[in-house]
C-alpha cells in the first residue's frame, strides 16, 4: 500500500517525464504519436476536472444562500445563469425560434454566448484603460529612486508615441555627431533606444534567470524532489 501511495506516483512522474524529454530528440512517427497521444490524454484528464469545478461552484453558492451571507441573493443569479447555459448546451432538441441545438451556430447557446458572454468580456477588457490611468497616476507619486527612473522612462515612451512628441522634437535645434544629424530632443529616437537597448537587455537578464528556474523545477519534478503538487497526507 505504501508503495502504491508513495513510490508509484514518483515512478510514474519519472518515467513520463523522461519519455517526453527524450522523444523531443527523436525524429520518428512513434515520437510524434507519443507527443500527440500524451497531449490528448492530458486534455481528457483535465476535462474531467470540470466536474470538480461545477461541484465547487454550486457548493460555494449554496452555502452562501443557506448561511444568508451578505449579497446571497446574487448567488441565485449565478446558479440560474449556469443552469440556463447547461440546459441550452445539453438539451437534445432545438429551442423554439432557434435553428440548431447544442453549441452550434444558430442555437440558443450560441445566442447567449454572443449577446451576454462576449459583450461582458469585451467590457471588462476595456475597463483596463481606466485602471491604467489610475495606475499611471500612482506611478507619478514616485517615492524612491527606482520609482523615479521608471516614471521618467514611462513618460518618454508615452510622449514619444503621440503626435505632440514629434512636434516637440522637430522644434528643437540640431547638432552633428558621428556624421549624423540629431535633434537635442528626439522622442522617436529615444523611445526606439529605450525599447531596443536597456529594455531588451534587462528583460533578457530577467528571462534567462526565469528559464533556468523553470529548467530547475522541471528537473526537480522529474526526479521526484518536487512533489507538493501531489498533495500531502499519507
Amino acid at each position: 500500500m505504501i508503495f502504491l501511495k508513495r513510490q508509484l506516483p514518483i515512478i510514474i512522474a519519472f518515467v513520463a517525464g523522461i519519455m517526453m524529454w527524450i522523444r523531443y530528440y527523436i525524429p520518428s512517427e512513434v515520437s510524434t504519436n507519443l507527443e500527440d497521444g500524451y497531449l490528448e490524454w492530458v486534455r481528457i484528464i483535465v476535462g474531467f476536472a470540470a466536474i470538480l469545478g461545477i461541484l465547487s461552484l454550486l457548493q460555494h453558492h449554496m452555502l452562501k444562500i443557506r448561511m444568508k451571507r451578505p449579497g446571497f441573493a446574487f448567488s441565485y443569479v449565478t446558479i440560474a445563469a449556469f443552469a440556463l447555459m447547461m440546459f441550452a448546451g445539453f438539451a437534445p432538441f432545438n429551442f423554439p425560434g432557434f435553428a440548431e441545438k447544442n453549441m452550434e451556430t444558430g442555437s440558443l447557446f450560441n445566442w447567449l454566448y454572443e449577446f451576454t458572454f462576449i459583450p461582458m468580456q469585451a467590457t471588462m477588457f476595456s475597463v483596463l484603460a481606466f485602471f491604467i490611468a489610475s495606475a499611471a497616476f500612482r506611478a507619478f507619486r514616485a517615492r524612491s529612486m527606482e520609482a523615479t527612473l521608471l516614471l521618467v522612462a514611462a513618460i518618454i515612451m508615452m510622449v514619444g508615441r503621440v503626435p505632440i512628441g514629434d512636434l516637440i522634437s522637430n522644434a528643437t535645434p540640431t547638432f552633428m555627431m558621428f556624421g549624423n544629424e540629431y535633434h537635442f530632443i528626439d522622442f522617436e529616437e529615444w523611445t526606439g533606444w529605450l525599447l531596443n537597448v536597456p529594455n531588451a537587455a534587462a528583460k533578457r537578464g530577467i528571462l534567462l534567470g526565469v528559464y533556468l528556474s523553470q529548467i530547475a523545477i522541471s528537473i526537480r519534478i522529474i526526479f521526484g524532489i518536487e512533489r507538493t503538487y501531489m498533495g500531502g497526507g499519507d
Partner: peptide, 22 residues
C-alpha cells in the same frame, strides 16, 4: 514580463521573475 511593470507600480512588494521561483 509584460505584467511586471504594473505590479511594480501598484503593489507594495513585487517578486521579479526568478524571485518567484526562489
Amino acid at each position: 514580463e509584460h505584467q511586471l511593470p504594473f505590479f511594480i507600480v501598484t503593489c507594495d512588494y513585487t517578486l521579479i521573475g526568478e524571485e518567484l521561483y526562489a
